[in-house]
Design a binder for these strands. Structure first.
Length: 834
DNA sequence: TAATCGATCTTTTTT
DNA sequence: AGATCGATTA
């Protein structure tokens, strides 16, 4: 039978193939890490279209990240080009698509914009201004959670989130204000579609008629609202296929419910379950380490991943004195990788060894803040890197300002954006004047209200308000088809017209032409100042030589499409001048950032719909992947990334950093939260294909102070023989110890030194009686010629031990201890005391 | 009304 | 250490 199958199917293993060919009612695929689940999904999409004659437009596949969605679309289309017509989106992007389409039914204008967490907080503080910032943050978090659980203000279940009556009141008020403004928050993108489906049987019928196949990836991370949406989306005869891994559920904190995957068979009757337990990604030693940690979790379905790959190196655990050494160590590993490559090529130039790339490497950390040290070090060594998922660009003041202007242009009822920019730069508008405009608007069009209010204000406020409205007017003037939004109260015709504009590739236009059009526009648009893109975080190769040249006269250039609008708005509002004069040091950089935003906008048409599309894209996908990638995959670079963000990715070599108690796991974690951190460990470790490293620091600067750290609990859960330990383990450390404390000796003069436990790895050390030096793997050394380095190998030799040192420069040298040890000085490690 | 200085807290993780 | 917030001052 196999030979009758097309090659894309026969290439699958039996379980994968079974999953692809399955076609009864519902399917739950329990897919371990690296078991080829993306391959299964994409192949299944292709198979359904090609072999089963399913209309691609009736397929909906949902993922969690934009990156995953893009990858899925690419891979499916590579097998079967018609897959481009299928709807492959993130949950939120699908929600936004749906909500625009049926906006009216939720009382929204189809041109609504999306409020992020910050906007949410701003709105909340305008509702209850007396609250502290922390309280506001908590409230917005709880409202988000409520929406994740599909709980409305009046739902009695609201007590689960917050039992106080006050919370209910505020939540309710928040919903009213948001409705007045006419925007949606993240939760609404899921919750409102459900409500529309429930309240409008005709819409439900239409949607259910359309989507015959629904697939969901990373199902273990869905929340209740998303589950509810799935239920509403699927008609009685829809085919539902979900893929997930309970061991990789890491988003409980934002409402993910592992129950969804555990109870899926009950919720969807006649479910078949297929397990994918063959891991194709990692070598066995890596899987062993990953499993030994997650095995300590209680609440799991339990599965056994088996490595399909033989051999493999033992993962390395490096004990290091502090953060700086950690960054040194990571950078050195990467440099050595390439140093090896150079010597390799001489010896075995004809051997077909794969090309070594920076992108083979990823440095993982628990919190975004940890990236800084690595950035500094990589920058210093001219190792190109990119920081994944760093929101920094959109968190910049000038970018937020510009986006607020655009948002206000898109929705003149947007009070949050209005407040942000109406008096920025200072136009002499104080609380009084702004308050008057808002009162006048009475929840309606603030732009119109501003014009009406201006005449009755003081001369100063009047001219300020006028200059603001003129700026907005100027921005509006460069947009075509803007009339649509002039009167948001104009009902059906408006929505219908808007819907045409927002209509996606699915109805009518071929997705290929659409995408091609988009692409070519992107290509055509110059990608100047790619360096300016992520100023603090970009690769060193592109640091700003070009910028300094025109630093004398920085000005915004408008390019194609919507960039005209961005530039016009920012210029005429005086934002560019404001930031330039306000911040003499960073001013030019700010202009460059604004320029970058304008460049991104040039991919969109200069129309009202283009504006909405642009804003939606920014709200739903802040990864900067697209903008960053100048051509194809972009510059080859090391990946710096949070553990959470690595989900679904893989790298040849992975360094998991900061594996210390208090950092990973955070020390306030226990029980369920601790189990989630364990899963996070599992996710991180299983990203590695060939080599895996852990780093654990004895001391770490936190809050401006140096704190002594203990090794992570997780390290102690790993079988000692599964790791190769280098550096100085703290006294008493051994993997899998009798439960007990790790203890540190106190640090001395900034460099914490640790007494080595007697029991650990004596085969990796050697004393040299002639010099009185005791060498050990991982010892930190210094040489006048080569700077700092680590002892990476100790070999016995007739005339005494040979010590191999990897210097931070990447250079590796061997020293015959007896004769040459004077060239290298041990600066930390085993003290000479016993 | 805006800018500046000190006090205070910070770090999860993300669509 | 760095951001952020509030109070004080110009």
């Amino acid at each position: 039978m196999t030979e009758t199958l097309p090659s894309y199917l026969s290439a699958l293993n039996p379980e994968q193939r079974e999953a692809v060919l399955h076609e009864e009612k519902s399917l739950l695929i329990l897919a371990g890490a690296g078991s080829g689940k993306t391959r299964v999904i994409t192949t299944k999409i292709a198979y359904l279209i090609r072999e089963r004659g399913i209309d691609p437009r009736s397929i909906l596949a949902v993922t969690f990240t934009n990156k995953a969605a893009r990858e899925m679309a690419e891979r499916a289309a590579a097998i079967e080009s018609r897959a481009a017509y299928a709807m492959l989106r993130t949950f939120h992007s699908f929600g936004a698509w749906f909500l625009r389409r049926y906006a009216r039914l939720a009382g929204l204008n189809p041109s609504f914009t999306i409020y992020d967490d910050d906007d949410m907080a701003s709105l909340l503080s305008s509702i209850c201004g007396e609250k502290s910032k922390a309280d506001i943050k908590l409230l917005s978090h709880q409202i988000s959670r409520a929406k994740d659980y599909f709980i409305s203000p009046d739902d009695p279940e609201i007590k689960i989130i917050n039992y106080k009556k006050e919370f209910q009141t505020i939540y309710k008020r928040y919903e009213e204000r948001l409705a007045e403004i006419g925007n949606a928050d993240f939760g609404d993108l899921i919750k409102k579609p459900v409500e529309i489906l429930r309240n409008n049987p005709d819409v439900a019928a239409e949607i259910r008629g359309r989507f015959r196949v629904v697939m969901i990836d990373e199902y273990q991370d869905t929340n209740i609202a998303q589950f509810t949406l799935l239920k509403e989306l699927c008609g009685a005869d829809a085919y539902v296929c979900v893929v997930g891994d309970d061991d990789q559920s890491i988003y409980r904190f934002r409402g993910a419910e592992v129950r969804n995957i555990l109870e899926f068979p009950e919720r969807f009757p006649h479910t078949d379950i297929i397990r994918l337990e063959r891991n194709y990604r990692s070598t066995a030693p890596i899987l062993r380490v990953a499993s030994s940690v997650v095995d300590n979790n209680k609440g799991r379905l339990g599965k056994t991943l088996t490595a399909e790959r033989g051999g493999g190196k033992t993962p390395v655990l490096a004990f290091l004195p502090n953060q700086d050494e950690e960054a040194h160590f990571a950078a050195s590993l990467i440099e050595r990788y390439f140093a090896d490559a150079r010597s390799d090529t001489k010896r075995a130039a004809d051997k077909q060894s794969p090309v070594k790339k920076y992108s083979d490497w990823a440095i993982l950390y628990r919190t975004n803040a940890q990236s800084l040290g690595f950035e500094t070090e990589l920058l210093r060594r001219h190792i190109p890197y990119r920081v994944v998922g760093s929101l920094k660009f959109y968190e910049r003041e000038e970018i937020k300002d510009a986006l607020a202007l655009l948002s206000f242009l898109a929705n003149p009822r947007d009070e949050v954006s209005f407040r942000r920019v109406v008096n920025k730069p200072a136009r002499g508008l104080g609380d009084v004047a702004v308050g008057r405009v808002i009162t006048e608007a009475a929840g309606g069009d603030l732009f119109a209200a501003a014009r009406r209010t201006a005449p009755i204000l003081s001369a100063k406020a009047r001219s300020g308000l006028q200059s603001f409205t003129e700026a907005v007017d100027a921005g509006r003037a460069v947009l075509a088809n803007f009339a649509l939004w002039d009167d948001p109260t104009d009902g059906a015709a408006l929505a219908d017209a808007a819907m045409d504009l927002f209509e996606d590739a699915d109805d009518g236009a071929s997705p290929q032409t659409e995408k091609a059009g988009r692409k070519s526009r992107k290509k055509a648009s110059p990608a100047p100042d790619a360096a300016a893109n992520m100023p603090t975080t970009n690769a060193p190769a592109v640091s700003g030589n070009k910028k300094t040249k025109d630093a004398a006269q920085p000005s915004l250039r408008s390019g194609e499409g919507l960039s005209v609008c961005v530039v016009t708005l920012v210029q005429s509002a005086g934002l560019a001048a404001y930031h330039l004069t306000h911040d003499e040091i960073a001013g030019n950089q700010r202009i460059a950032n604004l320029q970058e935003l304008a460049n991104a906008a040039s991919l969109y048409p200069a129309t009202g719909a283009g504006l909405i599309e642009f804003l939606e894209h920014i709200d739903l996908d802040r990864s900067m992947e697209e903008q960053n990638a100048t051509d194809g995959e972009g510059v080859d670079s090391v990946t710096l990334i949070t553990l959470h963000n690595t989900k679904g990715l893989e790298f040849k070599r992975v360094i998991i950093t900061g594996v210390e108690q208090g950092v990973f796991p955070r020390d306030d974690k226990k029980d369920d939260d601790l189990e989630e951190e364990r899963r996070l460990f599992y996710v991180g470790a299983t990203r590695a294909m060939d080599e895996l490293y852990f780093t654990c620091c004895a001391a770490r600067r936190m809050f401006g102070q140096t704190a002594l750290m203990e090794p992570s609990l997780f390290l102690s859960e790993i079988d000692k023989s599964a790791l190769r330990v280098i550096g100085q383990p703290p006294y008493g450390f051994s993997a899998r110890p009798a439960a007990g404390a790790f203890q540190h000796s106190t640090s001395q003069r900034g460099v914490a030194s640790r007494k080595r436990g007697r029991q650990s790895g004596d085969e990796d050390s050697a004393g040299d009686s002639s010099t009185g030096t005791f060498w050990k793997m991982g010892d930190r050394v210094f040489s006048d010629d080569n700077g700092y380095g680590f002892v990476t190998e100790i070999r016995p030799h007739a005339t005494g031990p040979i010590v191999v040192v990897l210097f931070d420069t990447g250079k590796e040298m061997s020293f015959l201890s007896r004769h040459q040890s004077s060239k290298i000085t041990k600066i930390s490690g085993e003290d000479h005391d016993g």
